[in-house]
């Protein structure tokens, strides 16, 4: 490892390419922390947004008109406002009226921190799109299939969970894939409310060391890698779930 650090130091002296995040242990650690924070934030938001999508799509087809209207309102709210505005709104406007606890400095502290608000905001944002994506999948399941399930004595919930959802999933995976890729990229917005994810840390490093081009290049490569891993995983999943004769 030492050799790599030394190489980065020599590279800076010889070419002026300043990769502080390799040879400076403080910068290295905070960039690693930032990377892990981005991964952590992405994983939580991916899981929650898919769950919201599944539940929301089910509620959209519910018998209760109130429930259906609530879901429609939720989708309108989150789909029609920019995610950055949502983050600011949640953190600064909603966050300020939340209950507080007292921290060890004897000062009040809000119950939900910036990370929690980022998770809430980003999950609901991506979730709103996921609801629509799942709906498109559900609507693609032939009515006759559902009737067949009913004839076999399945309840509404059973039909949804065991017949409709598995088929719908296969139909909407490509567009779900798209939305989840977008979600991973949208996590960068969390730096506006000081969640120390990768862009936030890179920004601080380039402000300290004035190595903007180097950090920008690193960010680009890091996100290509992260999204690449996600897309690869989703494609594998898509392939493993393929039903011969169903869909394309």
């Amino acid at each position: 490892m030492e050799a790599v650090y030394e190489w980065a130091r020599v590279l800076y002296q010889d070419t002026g390419i300043n990769l502080t995040f390799i040879y400076d242990s403080y910068d290295r650690n905070r960039l690693i922390d930032g990377f892990l924070m981005t991964v952590w934030l992405s994983v939580i938001c991916l899981g929650l947004s898919v769950a919201i999508g599944v539940v929301g799509a089910w509620a959209q087809g519910a018998r209760s008109a109130i429930l259906r209207r609530c879901v429609a309102g939720y989708i309108e709210f989150f789909r029609n406002t920019p995610p950055l505005v949502q983050l600011y709104f949640f953190y600064f406007a909603l966050g300020s009226i939340m209950p507080t606890t007292t921290n060890r400095f004897g000062l009040p502290e809000p119950l939900l921190d910036n990370f929690a608000w980022a998770v809430i905001s980003l999950s609901f944002f991506a979730g709103a799109f996921n609801v629509e994506i799942f709906r498109s999948g559900i609507e693609a399941v032939p009515e006759s299939t559902k009737e067949a399930a009913e004839a076999l004595g399945y309840t509404r919930l059973q039909t949804y969970l065991e017949i409709v959802l598995p088929l719908a999933f296969r139909v909407c995976l490509p567009s779900l894939n798209n939305n989840l890729v977008n979600l991973v990229k949208t996590t960068t917005l969390a730096y506006a409310i000081a969640v120390p994810e990768m862009l936030y840390q890179a920004n601080q490093i380039w402000s300290d060391s004035v190595n903007v081009p180097e950090m920008m290049t690193f960010l680009l490569i890091a996100y290509v890698f992260l999204v690449g891993v996600l897309v690869w995983g989703m494609h594998r999943w898509e392939r493993s779930m393929r039903l011969p004769g169903f869909g394309s």
């Binding site: 600064f92 507080t100 000062l107 809000p110 910036n114 506006a192 000081a194 936030y200």
Partner: peptide
């Protein structure tokens, strides 16, 4: 450090007890 884009955000966060 909880760092924000500008002083307006940082001071708001301070007043909202986001930081000590």
């Amino acid at each position: 450090i909880v760092a924000f884009k500008g002083t307006a955000e940082a001071l708001t966060a301070l007043k909202q007890n986001r930081c000590v």
